[in-house]
Structure formats: structure tokens, C-alpha cells
Nucleic acid binder design. Structure first.
Length: 837
RNA sequence: GCCGCGGUGGUGGAAUGGCAUACACGCAGGACUUAAAAUCCUGUGACCUCACGGUCGUGAGCGUUCGACUCGCUCCCGCGGCACCA
């Protein structure tokens, strides 16, 4: 009697068996790196946040990496696929406040439930090898790294206008603002001047720029190939925002002042005014009387400055697009064009962007144009070379924009030049004359890492009245995060409320001093965690350098696209910093980056409790088992894709596994196979090849499709040949092996119980891939004038054109098209034949 | 506005420049059943045709090619990122 496919009967059993036998022990990986017999493979998945809700999206994220890891292991790699949790952070603290519990208790409980759910997945993760960022064993090294950064001048205390979330009561990073709102709570972010800790990521701006693909491929044979998505590289480069330009100096008439404007395109022959930001030093000097101007103008400037102060930067940039501004009464000299331009104050200029002053070229820039139009300033468009309307160029090198009010100016300066050449010449000229200096500018800003909240790594610094800011000595680490703290929002850092913790002695002078009550941004925690994964218990440093040498860089890093501008950039920054300290010798921490999409609810919406469309992995496992869930998640769409969960498709995938189960049941009753199907064997070899290539390229959906196709053929062969199985045991086992990374439980059950194997299928070696598979028969498409008209069966794909032509010329159908006409033939051996009549 | 990615059946999606729509879902018809579920078989891009067969067809339009979903150019639409960035 053949049994039905009932995964619930054996999945738990194998999970326990694997654990008992230590099939997935990382210790074994660590032992074998010493011998260097096997190549290493480091699979990394972004460490999940301990939200407590494990939803099917987590499974989706982890299944593909698990399949790849199992596959690599069967292919002889020493695979390192560790796990950890991102356990500090605001959501835990907010949840604890809401539930009247403690962030630590809440977090640790979540880790427990999440781990249990994860374990059902049947991943090859070793759950005894974990890294949890909220534990002192981990954050102690955050503090150590912070001290190193401080030592190198890369961590500094600064006062800056910062993004402040009034609801979370903390500073948040630029990268974590979505449409002017806090990424975690959705509250509108305001600007507030706050003193805080920064990391000088700007010092690494140049190093963090991804080389163009041309530069990257410029023969560096010793360097490994870095394969990151274009979207990430381009996105990060835009964020770093390196621009070449020039700082132009404009002397202010009747004073010793100079206004410097940064520009990437010095269109000085179209420049008709200057705008300075309200924060500009010129404005301060006007207000304090250092620069004398017309009293009426002064009054207007003062009022405008006051109004601008009341607005946050966000208000200034978002409220309407209507330009505002006032004239200062001052003029500055545009020495290149040879005329004076009025100086205005306007809040569309921002103090910290460029030099805080804009040279207004309304003929070339849209916002300058708007400003000029509103305040009736001249608008000149510079036209050179072949640009613009030729008839007007004859009159002058500069032409007024059609329909715009303005003035015409003659200049021989740009004669005969293309526009871009004109810009170059202007820059050269300005530098030569000492009126300007070429500079680079970057968009990226220093990384604010202070958080005025409780649940994070304490900043290992002490504030002493006499000595100032003093670092905690390395020996004193960790500065433990105290449990007893009032962390409800009170407008001050919660740690400051625990006086016992706060008050300490200055390490320098020994007098009473206070600890820094701030905590580190959790992106600090995740900027280096994969190094800690190598040795979670290591006590001599953040990680074991020997292991880092053997196991890093990461081979594939799986994660979300939302971390393009935050986490992955910080992680690259830390890697380069570690390299500068000699701790590692790699430029990039991950050779390949793969980004997952999102599993939507069955209704096509993002899963959320309020919509009631959340798919719980536990329910799926109860209904179909883990193998089906895993297989479905791999089959439903490519890893990068986003799509809805389908209760119908998963039933189809379950059907596929049932059919496999059934076909293997035959082997338990089979005595001997008399009629092994040679054709099917060739199909299997092709399937093995396809599956091997596709898993390597993380195209799990098409590898499953290939296996489905094979099963269809196999079943068909079983009925036609009237031989149970149709495939000898040797090959039936191979098919089971290529399915094993996807369906670890079922394949193990069959491997052991039906084929009687003594060791796990997951420790077996991947079937050999045959490079050249000789097919007994192929079908060649025949085209007439590029259109498919018929096909022809060939004994093999290596037949010559003459042979094929001999066969075809007799064909009636072909004769219908080519009979009596002139034609020529294109024959691609084994692929296609095309008659051009 | 700038940058990046995409547009293929009813649906999810396949196709080193070489048979477009693999695989799956759904749907339709059939077998089994007293009946249903499950399972199995057949069909399934559109249009014309009783049929054999033919025409059209990968967002639109040009182009390169014996041959284009794939390469080039010009548009249209959708998604994502950045942005009063000087």
C-alpha cells in the first residue's frame, strides 16, 4: 500500500534528527577553514529586526539564501551561513512604553518566538551560533569601534541643525526621512539645533564612490569582481553627489566684503543677480551694522531675516514654490562679464548648501528664472556655437529668451565656442585672474549617530567640567546599559534620569563627572555585524581577524532595496575604516548584493494587521508543510519581484510535491528496473544542468520550472514504457538531490527510507553536470523568409548544411515555397535554418 | 526637473539575436463517482476557416539584421530614488 504525501508526519522528525547529528553545525565550518581544502562561501542575509511578528516575508527573504547555501555545500563549498538579530532601537522602546513593559523583556521574548518560527523553515542555520546586538558582548565592541573612530578624529561632537522627530523625541538621520516624515512613526520631522555626535563619513566620500563600470573592469586581475545592482551603485553615487565646479568670488561694492558662489556651470554672461541665504555672513553683518546699507533696505532685511528664523528648513523648502526675497541695496561686481549685479536675500538659498550664496543666471536655471520674473530682474540667455536660434546669434552672442524682458549684451569672449567649452573657458579665465577656484562639492553629510533614547548602545564618553569630553578607557568597556531607567519621553535622554548610572568620575582628573546619556543609532550596530558573526563570543577584539581572513568578504549579501542609502553605505564605510586600521584587507565587504522584493497579501496590498491580509507562516506550515511553503516562495516570482500571495498557486506547488512523492513510492515496491529510459536520462542531465546554473544565478523560479518539466516527462515515460519508475535508481536519486535544497524534508525522507541511505542527503555531493549532453534527436525549426513554416527531426545536432539541405529539398512543404525560385540559405548548426527566397 | 528600473496571454511569469508565451495558476470540456471533493486526461494569445491552413501579435513608431521581446534612435505609460543642491 503506497502512502500519501503527508509532510506533517516527518518534517519535525528530520529537524530533530539533523540537530542531533549536527548536520548544520558552524563549528564544523570553522574547523574545516583551517585545512583550506574547500573553497569558502559566506551567505549573508540582513539581520532581521526583533519586531516579534515573523511574517511570510521573512521566509521569502531567507528561503532563497538557504537554497543557495545548501546548493553550494553540496557542491563542495565550506558554507558559512550565520544568523543574528537587530535588537536595539526605537520600535522596541515605543512598544514597551505602549505595553508597559521593558524593551529588553519585550525584545528577548520576541527573539524566542521568532526563532521558533524560523526553525520550522528548515534552514541550514545553526541556531546555537547567534549574534544579538542588544547584548553587552556585542555592543561593547560598538563602543570600542566608537572610541577608535574618536581617536582617528572621525567621531566628533558638533552642533547642527538636525532632523528632530517630536514624537520619538530624538534626532534622526537624513536617510531615515521619507517625504518629510519619520520613517518609523510617520510624524512630520522638524529642524532643531542640537548638539550631538557625528561620524565623519564625508572623509570617506571619495572612497565610497563606485567606479564607473569602465574603470571597474580595467584589468585588475587580483581584485575580485564586485557585483552589486546598478540601482544601488547609482543611488549611492547620487547620494554622495560629487560635483566639480568653481567657487566664484564677487567683490561687494563699497565694502571689503566678497561673496563667494559655488556653481557647476558658470554662465557669467547670463548672471544678473546674487542671492544669499538668510544665514549668510553678509546678512549678519548688515544687521549688526558692520556693513552700512540704505536704512529702508536694512529694515526690510531685518524683517525678512526674522521671518526666516521662525521657519524650519523643511517649511522653507516645502511651503509653496512662490519665491520670496528682499533687496539689500548692495551691488557686487561680476568681473568676468564686466557689470554689477544686485545682491538679494532669499530663503530659497540654504546656508549649508554650496557656499550659501547663489549666482542668479535666470536664462539657464528655472528657480533663478522664477525669482527674476517675480522681482523684475533682467533675464539673459547665453547662446553659443550651434545652440539656439541662428538668426538671432548673428545679431549678438547673447540672445534674450523669446518673449522675456531683458537686455542684450555683446561679448567677444565666447566667440566660436560650444556651450560647454564656454563654461570651461570661463572657469580657466576666473582661476587665472584669481577670481575663482575650482572645487569639488559633495551632497553627503556627516552621519548623525546620537539618539536621545534609551534602547541602544551607550556612548562611551564622559563629560567633565574641567577636562571636557573624555573617552572611557578601553578596559572599562562595556559601559553597560542599565536596566532600571525611566524611558518614557520627557524631552531629555532617558539615561540622564538614572543618576546612579549617570554620575561617575573623570578618567583624566578623577573629579566627579557625568556619562554621556545618549545612545548610538542602530545603524551603527548593523554597520559591522557580519564580522562579529564570525566569532560571536570573541573577547580579544570585535572579531577574530584570522577567521575574517578566511571567510570574508561576504559572497552574497541578501537584503532589502530600502537600505541603499543607509545601511549598506554605512557598512561600506565601516569596512573601509577597518581596513585603514589594518583589521581587514578588503575594500568591499560583500562581493555580490541581491535585493529581494515584497510578498503582498492575497488582496494585492501590503500585508498589515489592520487590513487583515497577513499570511502567518505557522498556518501555511500546518496546512501544507515547510517544503511546500519554501518551494512556493521560490517559485512564485523572481527574488527581486513583488507580488501577491496566492492560495491557489501554493496548492499547485503542493500538487507537484505530491506527484514526486508518489513516483518515488514506486521504488519501495520495485524489485528491479528492466527498461531504463535512455531518452529520459538525457532529459534529466539537461535538467541537472539547468537547475545548477539557475541556482547559481539565484533564479529559483526557473529551476523549479525545469524540475516540473522533468517530472511531466518522467510521468509520461512511466505510462508509455509500462515500466514502473522508468528511471534507474541511480538517476532517480540524482533528481532527488537537485530538489533537496528546495524541499529538504521530503527529499531526506525519501533518501533515507526508500533508498535506505545512512547519511543525510544534504551531506551528499551534487550530481555531476555534463557540459556536453549528446541528444539522440533534435527538432530543427525551418524558416522561409524569417517566418517559421515547419520543423524537421535530425538524428543529432552536428549534421552539416549539405546533409540537412538534402533532407529538406525533397520536402513538399518546402518545395511549395521555394520551388522554381532563387534562394539562399542561412544555417545555424543545430539551431535553425532559414531560406531567403 | 534629474537619475535608475520596467511595459510579454485572463493571472504570476519564461525566452546566450534563432520555434514568443516554458512552468504554474485560472478557465472550459471529458474520465472516475449515486453525488461532491480529490485525482487524471484534453484544450486554452487574437482573428479568419467546417477543415487543411493562413493573417496579426511582446507599450507606440522608425532603424540595424537572413532573422529583433532581445541591439540603436524617437516617443508614451508605470514603478522606485533624489531634489528650490546653486
Amino acid at each position: 500500500m503506497l502512502s500519501k504525501y503527508q509532510p506533517q508526519q516527518f518534517e519535525k522528525k528530520w529537524a530533530e534528527e539533523w540537530k542531533k547529528a549536527g548536520v548544520y553545525k558552524i563549528n564544523k565550518v570553522i574547523e574545516s577553514i583551517k585545512s583550506e581544502e574547500k573553497p569558502k562561501f559566506y551567505t549573508l542575509v540582513e539581520l532581521p529586526y526583533t519586531s516579534g511578528d515573523l511574517h511570510i516575508g521573512h521566509w521569502f527573504t531567507f528561503t532563497h539564501p538557504d537554497v543557495l547555501s545548501r546548493f553550494k555545500r553540496m557542491n563542495g563549498y565550506n558554507v558559512f551561513f550565520p544568523m543574528g538579530y537587530d535588537a536595539f532601537g526605537l520600535p522596541a522602546e515605543n512598544a514597551a512604553i505602549k505595553r508597559k513593559t521593558h524593551p529588553k523583556d519585550w525584545t528577548m521574548k520576541n527573539i524566542e518566538t521568532m526563532t521558533k518560527q524560523f526553525q520550522q523553515m528548515g534552514t541550514m542555520i545553526d541556531w546555537d551560533w547567534m549574534t544579538i546586538t542588544c547584548q553587552p558582548e556585542y555592543y561593547r565592541w560598538n563602543q570600542w569601534i566608537f572610541l577608535k573612530l574618536y581617536e582617528k578624529g572621525l567621531a566628533f561632537r558638533g552642533k547642527a541643525l538636525s532632523n528632530w522627530c517630536p514624537s520619538c523625541q530624538t534626532v534622526i538621520a537624513n536617510e531615515n526621512i521619507e517625504n518629510g516624515k519619520c520613517w518609523r512613526c510617520g510624524e512630520t520631522v522638524v529642524q532643531k539645533e542640537v548638539e550631538q555626535w557625528f561620524l565623519k563619513i564625508t572623509d570617506y566620500a571619495e572612497q565610497l564612490i563606485w567606479p564607473s563600470s569602465a574603470e571597474a573592469s580595467e584589468g585588475k586581475p587580483d581584485k575580485p569582481k564586485i557585483d552589486w545592482p546598478k540601482s544601488v551603485k547609482v543611488g549611492q553615487n547620487n547620494w554622495i553627489g560629487k560635483k566639480t565646479g568653481i567657487n566664484m568670488d564677487y567683490p561687494v561694492k563699497g565694502s571689503k566684503e566678497t561673496i563667494t558662489c559655488f556653481t557647476t556651470a558658470p554662465v557669467n554672461f547670463g548672471m544678473t543677480f546674487i542671492v544669499v541665504a538668510p544665514e549668510h555672513k553678509i546678512v549678519k553683518k548688515i544687521i549688526n551694522g558692520e556693513i552700512k546699507i540704505d536704512p529702508k533696505c536694512k529694515k526690510e532685511v531685518e524683517e525678512y531675516y526674522k521671518k526666516a528664523q521662525e521657519k524650519t528648513e523643511m517649511d522653507r523648502l516645502t511651503e509653496g514654490k512662490e519665491k520670496t526675497g528682499v533687496f539689500t541695496g548692495l551691488y557686487a561686481t561680476n568681473r568676468i562679464a564686466g557689470w554689477d549685479v544686485p545682491v538679494w536675500v532669499a530663503d530659497f538659498a540654504i546656508g549649508h548648501v554650496g557656499t550659501g550664496a547663489v549666482q542668479g543666471c535666470p536664462g539657464h536655471d528655472y528657480k533663478d528664472f522664477e525669482f527674476a520674473k517675480k522681482f523684475n530682474l533682467p533675464i539673459i540667455r547665453v547662446v553659443t556655437g550651434e545652440d539656439g536660434d541662428q538668426s538671432e546669434i548673428k545679431e549678438s552672442r547673447q540672445v534674450i529668451i523669446k518673449g522675456m524682458k531683458g537686455k542684450m549684451v555683446n561679448s567677444k569672449f565666447l566667440d566660436g565656442l560650444e556651450f560647454s567649452e564656454g563654461l570651461e573657458k570661463t572657469m580657466d579665465y576666473a582661476e587665472e585672474k584669481g577670481w575663482g577656484k575650482r572645487v569639488f562639492s559633495y551632497h553627503i553629510r556627516d552621519w548623525s549617530i546620537s539618539r536621545q533614547r534609551y534602547w541602544g548602545t551607550p556612548v562611551p564618553m564622559i563629560h567633565c567640567v574641567g577636562c571636557g569630553v573624555v573617552p572611557v578607557s578601553e578596559k572599562e568597556l562595556p559601559v553597560e546599559l542599565p536596566y532600571e531607567v525611566d524611558f518614557t519621553p520627557r524631552g531629555m535622554p532617558p539615561l540622564a534620569t538614572n543618576k546612579k548610572w549617570l554620575n561617575t568620575k573623570c578618567p583624566k582628573c578623577g573629579k566627579p563627572a557625568k556619562r554621556d546619556p545618549e545612545t548610538l543609532d542602530t545603524f551603527f550596530d548593523s554597520a559591522w555585524y557580519w564580522f562579529r558573526y564570525l566569532s560571536p563570543q570573541y573577547k580579544e577584539g570585535p572579531f577574530d581577524g584570522e577567521r575574517a581572513k578566511k571567510l570574508t568578504p561576504v559572497d552574497v549579501y541578501f537584503g532589502g532595496a530600502e537600505h541603499t542609502l543607509g545601511h549598506t553605505l554605512y557598512a561600506r564605510f565601516f569596512t573601509k575604516f577597518f581596513k585603514s586600521l589594518g583589521m581587514v584587507n578588503q575594500d568591499e565587504f560583500a562581493l555580490k548584493r541581491v535585493q529581494h522584493g515584497i510578498v503582498l497579501g492575497p488582496d494585492g496590498n501590503k500585508m498589515s494587521k489592520s487590513k487583515g491580509n497577513v499570511i502567518n507562516p505557522d498556518d501555511v506550515v500546518a496546512e501544507y508543510g515547510s517544503d511546500t511553503a519554501r518551494l512556493y516562495l521560490c517559485f512564485m516570482m523572481p527574488y527581486e519581484g513583488t507580488g501577491a500571495w496566492s492560495t491557489q498557486t501554493i496548492a499547485g506547488v503542493n500538487r507537484f510535491l505530491s506527484r514526486i512523492w508518489k513516483i518515488y513510492q514506486d521504488y519501495s515496491v520495485m524489485v528491479s528496473l528492466t527498461n531504463h529510459d535512455k531518452n529520459l536520462e538525457i532529459k534529466l542531465k539537461k535538467t541537472i544542468k539547468k537547475v545548477t546554473e539557475d541556482i547559481d544565478n539565484i533564479k529559483m523560479n526557473t529551476s523549479i520550472a525545469a524540475m516540473m518539466e522533468f517530472l511531466n516527462d518522467w510521468e509520461a515515460a512511466c505510462t508509455t514504457s509500462e515500466v514502473v519508475g522508468a528511471l534507474s535508481q541511480q538517476y532517480a536519486k540524482q533528481f532527488l538531490q537537485i530538489l533537496a535544497p528546495f524541499a529538504p524534508f521530503m527529499t531526506e525522507e525519501i533518501w533515507r527510507n526508500i533508498f535506505g541511505e545512512k547519511t543525510s542527503i544534504h551531506l551528499s555531493s551534487w550530481p555531476k553536470v555534463e557540459r556536453k549532453i549528446i541528444e539522440e534527436e533534435i527538432v530543427l525549426p525551418v524558416q522561409i523568409n524569417g517566418k517559421l513554416r515547419t520543423t524537421i527531426k535530425l538524428q543529432n545536432r552536428n549534421l552539416t548544411e549539405t546533409t540537412v539541405m538534402d533532407m529538406l529539398i525533397k520536402d513538399e512543404k518546402i518545395q511549395k515555397y521555394i520551388g522554381g525560385k532563387k534562394y539562399r540559405v542561412i544555417y545555424v548548426q543545430g539551431k535553425i535554418i532559414n531560406f531567403i527566397v
